[in-house]
Design a binder for these strands. Structure first.
Length: 1141
RNA sequence: GCUCGGAUGGUGGAAUUGGUAGACACGUUGGACUUAAAAUCCAAUGGACAGUAAUGUCCGUGCGGGUUCAAGUCCCGCUCCGAGUACCA
C-alpha cells in the first residue's frame, strides 16, 4: 500500500479520541511534566497557519516526554471572552455566547486535524460559568486582602482591621493609596461603618477608584490610548474627552519588587524579561522637598497689594479655599442677608466670606471697614473667642457688628436698616487698586514641592524646577502677573492628547509661574516653571531641574535662557548635559570631589537628617484598571449598598452574565449591563432579581462593569490541573502534584499583559496558601510570528488627455480613461526591465487604438503610464513562483472581469510583501487546505522545518514539497507498494551509525528547541537508509519512535504495521549508544595558513607527531610548500591540521 | 532617542568550546522514465578565472579595523533591517 495520509490521519485521530490516549492522570508513579500553550481566543476567522506553530512545538515536546517516561499534562482551552464576539453581537444581534460556541467548534475541528496530543478532558473556557465562578472567587479573595510590606506578602484584610482597632494606622507598613490620613485606634473605632469601608478600600488589593479614562460619547465607550488618533477616535473620528469614572483597580504595584525579583528565578527569554523589567520601571533615588517662596522682588521691600487682598499672605492659601467653600454653602441666614447686600444694593460694595488677616468674616464693606457677622447657635459657646476676634479686628480699624440667625430670618428689614445706619456713620477708607506685587518677598509660604530624583547627587546643579501643568500646586503658587500665561499654557496642553504630547518630544514648551523655591542646601532661590515634559503621572509630577546633568533640563534651560551651573569637574557642558555617573562632582559644598555613587549616599543621609527627604525606590508600573464597559466579560460578584461595593458571598457564585436586549452602552452612558432588566441582588433570596425590585434595603443594584480580558487568563494554568472541580478552583492534591508549568510556549506580544498579570495573581494565590509555587512557569519560549506574503498586481494608471481638434473637443477621457484606467495590469518582472517599458507603451497604445482606430491618431491624445498602483490580490490564486492565475483573477471580483494583463499570454508575476496575516490582506493561509492536500504530518514537519522556532518568518509554501516527499521516502523504507518489507535482520554498522547519530542529534535538538534541524536530521537519516537499502527492524522500529513526536500519524501507522497493538505514544524512546559512532579514522582537513587545501584520512590512534609526519610526507603537502620548510605545524588531533608557511 | 534582536548562495536556513562555510530543503539547469503530463529517479548548482579534463588559483558570511596558526563565531568602530518602548526625572 502506498502512503495515504488522509486515511491514516483520520484513523489515528479517531483512535486517540476513542482511547483517550493523552489523558493525564493526577496520580502516577511517573515523574510529572506540564507542557502548556497559551490558549487561543476563538475568533470567527478560524486558525491560520501561524497559530499552530507554537502548538506543534509544544506537542512535539509533550510527545517526546511521554516517550521518555513522563506523566505529561498537555491541556488546551479557550480564552473565550473578548471584544470581537461582542462587536459581532452589536452588529448582528447574535448572542456572543452563540458565536463563541460556533467558533470553538471550528477551532476544535482544526486543532484535531493537526493531531495534537491534548488532554481534552481538561478543556477550559473562560466564558463558561463553571470557570468564571472561580475568577469571581479570586476577585473576592483579592478584595478581602491587603499587602503587608513587613512580611512582603498579602494578608487577610481582617488582620488589618485588627491592627486599626488596636493601634490605628500610625505604624503600619502596607501597600496603599497615597495620602491616607493618620488615625488612632480611638478614631478608627469612632468612624462610621461607611467611613471605615472607605478607608479599607485604600488598602485592599482590588479597590474602586476614580480613574481618568478616554471617553468617547458618540461611541459610548472607553477607548484605550492607541484607539485615539489626533484627539479623536480611530473608529469614526469622534471627539474623545478625558472623563473620570469609578473603576476597579488591581494593586499590582504592591508586587512590583517581587515581580522583578521573580524574574531571576525563571528561565524566560531575556527580551521578555527586559520588557517586564522596563515596564515595572524600578528606579532608585530620593524624594526631596523644596519649600516654595513668594516671588522675589527685584527691588525694595514688599508692598501691600490691592486693598481687597486683606488676608494674611502666609496663610491665605489655606483660608481662601475654605472661604470659597463657605461661599458656596451659606447658612440659611447668610444667604438671606446676602440677597439684600449683594450687587451694591445698599449703594456700596459689600463682600461675603472674605479674608481679613487670619480670619474669614461673613460680610465686609472694605471702604467703610465694617464687618457684619451672622451667628448661629454654635457661636454661643464661642463668645469668648468671638470677643477676642472682634478685638483684634477693631485694632486694625474695623468695626464688627453681629446678628443672630433668628434676627436675620425673622426681621430682615430691621437688620438691613441697622447695617445702613452703621455704614452711614463710618468714614471712608481708601482701597488701593490692584496690580502691585501681592506678597512680601522671600518668605516661606508653607507649601512644599516634593520631587523624585535618581540623581540627588546633582542637587547643587539645580537652577529651576518644573511642575507638570496638571500639578495641584500650580494654581496656588502662580503669581498674578503670570496667571494668564500659565492659564493659557495649561489650556493649550490639556487640548493635546496624551499621545500627542508623548509623540512630540522635540518641541520645548513651558511657562514661568512667577514663584520661587528654596534650595534646601544652598539656600538659593530657584524659579518654578511648568512644562509638559514633566508628566503628572510619574513620580510626584515635579522635577528638580539640573540642566548640566540631564539633557531634557538642559534643552529646557537653553530654550528659556535659564542659568546652567556646572557641577562637574573638568567637563564641558557648553553643548550638552553630562549624564555620566562617573563624573567628579564640583561646586557642590560637602559633596564636591565625590563621584555619583558616594555623593548619592551622602545627600540622602543629609536629607534624612534634615527631615526634608529620604532615599526612595520609585516604580513606573501603575495599578491595573480592572473594569471594562463591555458585555462579553466576567461580571463582578459585587452589588452596591449606599454606594459602597459589597461582595456577594462565595457560596452564591457564579454570578452569571445577564441577558440584554442590546450589547451597546445605554443611552445615558452606562456600560452594556445597564441594559439588563434582571440585574439586582436580593440578599434574602441570594439571587439575581429584577431591577424593579431594588429597594436599597434588601435588594441592591449590581455592578455594571465587567472584568477585562486578562482576568480569566491570569490563572487558567492552575485550573487545568483539576479542571472539573466544582468545590475548589483546583484541589490541593492536584496543585501539589502538578506544581507548575515546566514548559510554556506562546507569543511575546503578551510580555507586559497576560504574562505580567498572571505572575501577579500567582504570587497573590501563593501568599494566601492557595497554590504551592509563586512562579507558575519555569521555562517559557516565545514562538516567532508567521507572517503572510501578501500579493499585489500592478495596476497602471493611464491618463488620457483630451485634445482639441478643429474646435471640437474629443472627450477621450470618457472613451478611454474609464475603460482602461484601473484595469490594465502589468507583470512585476516587466516593471524592473527598462527595455520592456517601451514594449508596454506599445501595448497600451495598441490597446487604445485597437477598438477605436477610426477616431484616433497619435497627436489626438497623450498617454502617461508611469504611475503604478499596487492592488491586493488573494494569495490563493498565486502559485509558489509568484505567478497569478489570470483567469481566477478575472473571476475574483467583478471589477476585474475585463482586466487586461500585460503580457497577455506569458506568466504574469505579482509583487510580494511580507505582512501580518489578516483576512483583510487576503494573505491568510488556512491549515485545512494543507492538511487536506499534504496531510497533518507534512504540515507539522514543514512548520518546524521553516526555521528556528523563536524567529519570525514569512509563510512560504515553496518548500512544502520537500517535506512531503520526505514522508513518502520514509514510508518506502517500510513498504514496497502493498507489502511490508521490513525484515528481522541485524543492522549493519553503517545503518546503526545512521540511526544512532540521528538519535543523538534529535535528542540534542529537542533539548535546545531546535526543531528545524531535527527535521533535517530525519531527512539525512532517511536518505542514508534509502541509499543503504535498509529495511531492517532493528533500525526502522526505533526510527519510527524517533519521528513519532514530529509526525505522529505516520509513526503510529508504521508501528502498528510492525506488529504492535498499543499506541506508539508511550513506546520507549531509543537510547543513544555512542559505541556505534566510534570511528577509527578521521578525515582531516589539511589547511595551509588557515585555508583548507585537501583532506586526508588518518587513524585516530595516531599521536600528534605521527599525524604531523604523515601530513608532511603527503605529496600534496610538498607541492603546496613548494620545497620550503613550514614555520609551524598545528595539529589538533581529531580536528584539523594547519601548516603555517 | 533608548532597549533587545538580526544581517550567511537565487530562496528558507545549517555550521559544537574559534577548527573543512553553505548541512537539509526549495528553486533553477540538464538527463532518465513516459505518447504526453504529473509523479518518481539521477546529475549539476556561491562567484570569478585558468584548463580538453582530472584539477587548480583567487574572492566570498552587511561595512572598516583588530586578536589568532585559524574568525560566520571573539574584540573595537560603523551601516542597514526588525521588534519593543516612548520625555520615567
Amino acid at each position: 500500500m502506498s502512503y495515504n495520509h488522509r486515511q491514516i490521519e483520520a484513523n489515528w485521530q479517531k483512535y486517540w479520541a476513542d482511547n483517550q490516549t493523552f489523558k493525564a492522570e493526577n496520580i502516577s508513579t511517573k515523574p510529572k511534566y506540564y507542557v502548556l500553550d497559551m490558549f487561543p481566543y476563538p475568533s470567527g476567522a478560524g486558525l491560520h497557519v501561524g497559530h499552530p506553530l507554537g502548538y506543534i512545538a509544544s506537542d512535539i515536546y509533550a510527545r517526546y516526554k511521554r516517550h521518555k517516561g513522563f506523566n505529561v499534562l498537555h491541556p488546551q482551552g479557550y480564552d473565550s471572552f473578548g471584544l470581537p464576539a461582542e462587536q459581532y453581537a452589536i452588529q448582528t444581534g447574535q448572542h456572543p455566547a452563540k458565536t463563541t460556541h460556533e467558533n470553538i467548534k471550528t477551532y476544535r475541528r482544526q486543532l484535531d486535524q493537526i493531531g495534537f496530543s491534548f488532554d481534552w478532558s481538561r478543556e477550559v473556557r473562560t466564558s463558561s460559568p463553571d470557570y468564571y465562578k472561580w475568577t469571581q472567587w479570586i476577585f473576592i479573595q483579592l478584595f478581602e486582602s491587603y499587602y503587608c510590606n513587613d512580611v512582603q506578602k498579602a494578608k487577610s484584610i481582617v488582620d488589618l482591621i485588627d491592627i486599626f482597632v488596636n493601634k490605628g494606622n500610625v505604624d503600619v507598613h502596607v501597600s496603599s493609596d497615597e495620602n491616607i490620613d493618620i488615625f488612632s485606634a480611638g478614631e478608627w473605632n469612632n468612624f462610621s461603618e461607611k467611613e471605615q469601608q472607605v478607608i479599607l478600600a485604600k488598602y485592599r488589593l482590588t479597590y474602586l477608584s476614580e480613574t481618568e479614562v478616554n471617553w468617547c460619547p458618540q461611541l459610548g465607550t472607553v477607548l484605550a490610548n492607541d484607539e485615539i488618533v489626533n484627539g479623536v477616535s480611530e473608529r469614526g473620528g469622534y471627539p474623545v474627552v478625558r472623563k473620570k469614572m469609578k473603576q476597579w483597580s488591581m494593586r499590582i504595584t504592591a508586587y512590583a519588587q517581587r515581580l522583578l525579583d521573580g524574574l531571576n528565578t525563571i528561565d524566560w527569554p531575556q527580551p521578555l524579561k527586559d520588557s517586564q523589567t522596563n515596564w515595572i520601571g524600578r528606579s532608585e533615588g530620593a524624594m526631596v522637598e523644596f519649600k516654595v517662596l513668594s516671588p522675589a522682588l527685584s527691588k525694595g521691600k514688599g508692598v501691600r497689594d490691592a486693598g481687597y487682598l486683606t488676608g494674611n499672605p502666609e496663610i491665605a492659601h489655606l483660608l481662601l479655599e475654605k472661604a470659597r467653600e463657605m461661599r458656596s454653602n451659606p447658612t440659611q441666614a447668610e444667604a438671606f442677608l446676602w440677597k439684600q447686600l449683594k450687587s451694591k444694593k445698599l449703594g456700596i460694595k459689600i463682600r461675603q466670606q472674605h479674608l481679613i488677616e487670619e480670619f474669614i468674616v461673613d460680610f465686609v464693606c472694605l471702604s467703610k471697614k465694617l464687618i457684619i457677622e451672622v451667628d448661629g447657635a454654635i457661636h454661643d459657646s464661642q463668645v469668648e473667642k468671638d470677643t477676642e476676634r472682634t478685638k483684634l479686628l477693631e485694632n486694625k480699624g474695623y468695626k464688627v457688628i453681629r446678628f443672630q440667625n433668628e434676627e436675620v430670618i425673622g426681621n430682615i428689614d430691621k437688620v438691613v436698616s441697622e447695617i445702613e445706619n452703621e455704614l452711614k456713620n463710618r468714614k471712608e477708607f481708601k482701597v488701593l487698586p490692584s496690580g502691585k506685587p501681592a506678597l512680601p518677598s522671600g518668605r516661606d509660604l508653607g507649601w512644599e514641592i516634593e520631587v523624585f530624583t535618581t540623581r540627588p547627587d546633582t542637587i547643587f546643579g539645580v537652577s529651576f524646577m518644573t511642575l507638570a501643568p496638571e500639578h495641584e500646586l500650580v494654581s496656588q503658587i502662580v503669581t498674578n502677573e503670570q496667571k494668564d500665561a500659565v492659564k493659557n499654557y495649561i489650556e493649550a496642553t490639556a487640548k493635546r492628547s496624551e499621545r500627542d504630547r508623548m509623540a512630540d518630544v522635540k518641541t520645548i514648551s513651558g511657562v514661568f509661574t512667577g514663584a520661587y523655591a528654596l534650595h534646601p542646601f544652598s539656600g538659593k532661590q530657584i524659579p518654578i516653571w511648568i512644562g509638559d515634559y514633566v508628566l503628572a503621572g510619574y513620580g510626584t509630577g515635579a522635577v528638580m531641574a539640573v540642566p548640566c546633568g540631564d539633557q531634557r533640563d538642559y534643552d529646557f534651560a537653553k530654550h528659556f535662557n535659564i542659568e546652567i551651573p556646572n557641577i562637574f569637574q573638568d567637563i564641558d557642558i557648553s553643548e550638552q548635559a553630562c549624564e555620566d555617573k562617573s563624573a567628579i562632582i564640583a561646586n557642590s559644598d560637602f559633596i564636591s570631589g565625590m563621584t555619583a555613587k558616594k555623593a548619592i549616599k551622602r545627600i540622602i543621609f543629609e536629607l534624612e537628617q534634615k527631615g526634608i527627604g529620604e532615599g526612595k525606590i520609585n516604580y513606573r508600573i501603575r495599578d491595573a484598571v480592572f473594569s471594562r464597559q463591555r458585555y462579553w466579560g466576567e461580571p463582578f460578584p459585587v452589588y452596591y449598598k449606599n454606594g459602597m461595593p459589597q461582595m456577594i458571598d462565595v457560596e452564591h457564585l457564579p454570578i452569571k452574565l445577564p441577558e440584554v436586549e442590546k450589547y451597546l452602552p445605554t443611552e445615558d452612558g452606562k456600560p452594556p449591563l445597564g441594559n439588563a432588566t434582571n440585574w439586582a441582588w436580593d440578599m434574602d433570596k441570594a439571587e439575581v432579581v429584577s431591577n424593579q425590585l431594588i429597594d436599597n434595603e434588601t435588594i441592591f443594584p449590581l455592578e455594571l462593569n465587567t472584568m477585562p480580558g486578562w482576568a480569566g487568563s491570569s490563572w487558567y494554568f492552575n485550573r487545568y490541573m483539576d479542571a472539573g472541580n466544582t468545590d475548589e478552583f483546583a484541589s490541593k492534591e492536584a496543585l501539589n502534584y502538578w506544581q507548575d508549568v515546566d514548559l510554556y510556549i506562546g507569543g511575546s506580544e503578551h510580555a507586559t499583559g497576560h504574562l505580567l498579570y498572571s505572575r501577579f495573581w500567582q504570587k497573590f494565590l501563593f501568599d494566601k496558601g492557595l497554590v504551592p509555587v509563586d512562579e507558575y512557569a519555569k521555562k517559557l519560549i516565545n514562538q516567532g510570528m508567521i507572517t503572510g506574503r501578501s500579493a499585489f498586481v500592478n495596476r497602471l494608471i493611464i491618463n488620457v488627455t483630451d485634445k482639441v481638434e478643429l474646435g471640437k473637443t474629443i472627450n477621450l477621457k470618457t472613451l478611454y480613461q474609464i475603460r482602461f484606467e484601473n484595469n490594465v495590469y502589468i507583470s512585476s518582472d516587466i516593471l524592473t526591465i527598462p527595455l520592456k517599458r517601451r514594449r508596454i507603451r506599445k501595448l497600451i497604445e495598441f490597446l487604445v487604438k485597437k477598438d477605436e482606430k477610426e477616431y484616433l491618431n497619435e497627436d489626438q491624445y497623450s498617454l502617461n503610464y508611469n504611475n503604478i498602483e499596487p492592488v491586493r490580490v488573494p494569495t490563493s490564486i498565486v502559485n509558489t513562483s509568484d505567478e497569478i492565475d489570470i483567469e481566477e483573477f478575472k473571476k475574483w471580483q467583478i471589477e476585474f472581469k475585463d482586466a487586461i494583463s500585460i503580457p497577455e499570454e506569458e506568466a504574469f508575476k505579482v509583487s510580494r510583501e511580507v505582512e501580518k496575516m489578516s483576512k483583510s490582506k487576503y494573505n491568510v493561509v488556512n491549515p485545512d487546505d494543507i492538511c487536506e492536500k499534504y496531510g497533518a504530518d507534512t504540515l507539522r514537519l514543514y512548520e518546524m522545518f521553516l526555521g528556528p522556532l523563536e524567529q519570525a518568518k514569512p509563510w512560504n509554501m515553496a518548500g512544502i514539497s520537500g517535506v512531503s516527499s520526505f514522508l513518502k521516502k520514509l514510508w518506502k523504507l517500510y513498504f514496497n507498494n502493498e507489502d511490508l518489507i521490513v525484515v528481522d535482520e541485524k543492522g549493519t554498522k553503517e545503518e546503526l551509525k545512521t540511526l544512532h547519530k540521528t538519535i543523538k542529534k534529535v535528542d540534542e535538538d529537542i533539548a535546545n528547541f531546535s526543531f528545524n534541524t531535527s527535521v533535517s536530521s530525519f531527512m539525512i537519516a532517511v536518505n542514508e537508509l534509502t541509499a543503504q537499502k535498509c529495511h531492517k527492524r532493528e533500525i526502522l522500529e526505533p526510527l519510527a519512535v524517533l519521528i513519532s513526536p514530529y509526525a505522529p500519524h505516520i509513526a503510529e501507522e508504521l508501528w502498528n504495521k510492525l506488529g504492535h497493538n498499543e499506541s506508539i505514544s508511550t513506546a520507549e524512546y531509543p537510547i543513544f549508544n555512542p559505541d556505534f559512532l566510534i570511528e577509527s579514522t578521521k578525515t582531516y582537513p589539511i589547511s595551509f595558513n588557515g585555508k583548507m587545501r585537501f583532506t586526508m584520512d588518518l587513524s585516530l590512534n595516531l599521536s600528534k607527531e605521527e599525524i604531523e609526519s604523515a601530513v608532511l610526507d603527503h605529496e600534496k603537502t610538498k607541492s603546496q610548500l613548494n620545497g620550503q620548510t613550514p614555520k609551524k605545524v598545528i595539529v589538533v588531533p581529531g580536528k584539523i591540521v594547519n601548516i603555517v608557511g
